[in-house]
Amino acid sequence: MKIAFASSSKGGLDDKVSDQFGRCPTFTIVTVENGKTVNVVAVENPGHKAVSGAGIKAVQKLIDEGVDAVVAGNFGPNAEAALYEVGIKVYVMKDLTIKEALDRILSEK
């Protein structure tokens, strides 16, 4: 499965989970297979500098990337509705690095 982490700066496992979903600069997308991390990539968030509809643009990016779940500190109401609509699982996590947030999700299962 693929998990996207709203990232505070350039992304990567040592970056921090962003408080904002729609307007975070990048998403760190982690591919997990059998409980093991097999791939980590950072992609730009088209919502970062969008004039309006940032949340929806971010959701579209995640759909295009084939993401199954997403982690951020906060989600806007439109983004949350859209994520629910397309069946992407939402995790709210704050003040963690992406590695810490990933470990939490993996230890849940």
């Binding site: 309006s52 929806i56 959701v59 579209q60 609509e85």
Partner: peptide, 8 residues
């Protein structure tokens, strides 16, 4: 309005 999403 970015009101339309495209699924996979």
């Amino acid at each position: 309005d970015s009101a339309i999403l495209l699924t996979k």
